[in-house]
Design a protein around this nucleic acid. Structure first.
Lengths: 242, 242
DNA sequence: ACCTGAACACCGTTCAAGT
DNA sequence: ACCTGAACACCGTTCAAGT
């Protein structure tokens, strides 16, 4: 029989839920009923983040309740409040984890246009699978999200390097981000969102435009709109450079 | 003593809540406890929309619960479900009401650039005060929102008139809308959203850019970013015209 | 310090019973 | 057709009691 790792130490490649399952197994069937502090401590922010992310990816944001999160971690819901102040805090942890997944590598190697292009597509792709976080990000003081702040540091340095006037850097990034967030929602729209149905006769101009786009046969119409807007922003904002 | 208007007929200039209050007054103190159908019917979709909007404008979206909405209308919460299928339906009614407030007048009188500019600012301003509706709009089949559909009809006709190729009209509008929705969130961000706090030393480039923007002394930084992005989109998308 | 279990003050929604 | 009142299956959060 192999030695059991200490509770709370997830083995590499092991998921948080598997870890919790194994822990309750090795600790005996009534371990989770015993009150008091478990040896080593079962909860921390990174474990909460991992479990939340796993829950969301498996069952979606509707399933991310404090009760379900606690259950995945084999603790009582109230135990979570020793590590986060609120559910919003949990969403914030997830958001900052995702911010680190946005691809910034092109800022080291490519010219400004291409680097912004790759960053923007990656940013949109990451958050299009996590749109319930967008209202959280939009109002999020950067202090509370170190990875997000690190992204801004990289991007703002690249804008300065590319010749943007100092006082326009933040506004340019914000404009791009606003477009990216809005476009992330667009990815989640149903395919028939623009089907006017019985109202088609009353809206001939819009119906014709929708029909014409449909005839193009694009697999992902949201990508067409994103490419169009992004290229317009890149060339329009790029003109600000000295 | 003046003749009382029939219950459910809100007098011009009177609010839905005032109407409900007066109705319970003229009908006697125990009117709202009496079961069965009130004469004339107290509820309909437009009354629900008006009461929801009033509730939201007075106390915000957190206060828009089915219970609070029912209370404003002097009915039991369950009564609402005779007129809407769900709370999402209520949000949809509000959204479509707001869509009619977006200023489309410039499309009749101004050249494309200026008309789009006025439409976009108006659209952003309306929904910046109603950001909780944005996730609803983004996934909203236009069939379910006649006023929203009417807006698309006007805008798409103007894009065709301005020389946009048929198959690019919808994508161009979607790109603009994505930017508008993201920018609506930006309006609600706290003033100190970019204050890196104790992390400032670790992010010199971003901190300098934020500082430089702050020194410009703009009263509403969100407007600067919106203007920058909108002008880039207008000139970039405008280049698609034949 | 950090957990459990019970409790609190809500949610949106359903449905039988009434008129 | 459309209302009431009771009930259901949840929410996020707090807090005394434990170790």
């Amino acid at each position: 029989m192999p030695a059991s790792p200490a509770p709370g130490n997830t083995a590499p490649g092991e998921t948080a839920v598997e870890d919790a399952a194994r822990r309750s197994l090795t600790a005996g069937p009534d371990a989770r009923r015993r009150a008091g502090r478990p040896v080593g401590g079962v909860l921390d922010k990174s474990g909460i983040t991992r479990a939340a992310l796993e829950l969301v990816e498996k069952k979606g944001y509707d399933a991310l309740t404090m009760a379900a999160l606690a259950r995945a971690l084999n603790v009582a819901p109230s135990a979570l409040y020793n590590h986060v102040k609120s559910k919003r805090d949990v969403l914030l942890l997830v958001e900052d984890h995702l911010a680190a997944l946005v691809d910034l590598s092109a800022f080291d190697t490519e010219p400004w246009e291409e680097a912004v292009r790759k960053w923007a597509w990656s940013y949109r792709d990451v958050f299009s699978r996590h749109t319930p976080l967008i209202p959280v990000i939009a109002v999020l003081p950067v202090t509370d999200a170190p990875q997000t702040l690190a992204m801004y540091e990289t991007v703002s340095a690249a804008f300065r390097e590319a010749g943007f006037p100092e006082e326009r850097i933040v506004s340019s990034i914000v404009a791009l981000e606003s477009f990216i967030f809005g476009s992330a929602y667009d990815v989640t729209a149903p395919a028939d969102i623009f089907d006017a149905g019985s109202m088609a006769d009353a809206t001939p101009s819009f119906t014709a435009a929708v029909q014409s786009l449909a005839e193009q046969g694009h697999e992902r119409p949201a990508d067409v709109a994103f490419a169009l807007g992004l290229e317009a922003l890149i060339s329009g904002l790029g003109a600000l450079r000295k």
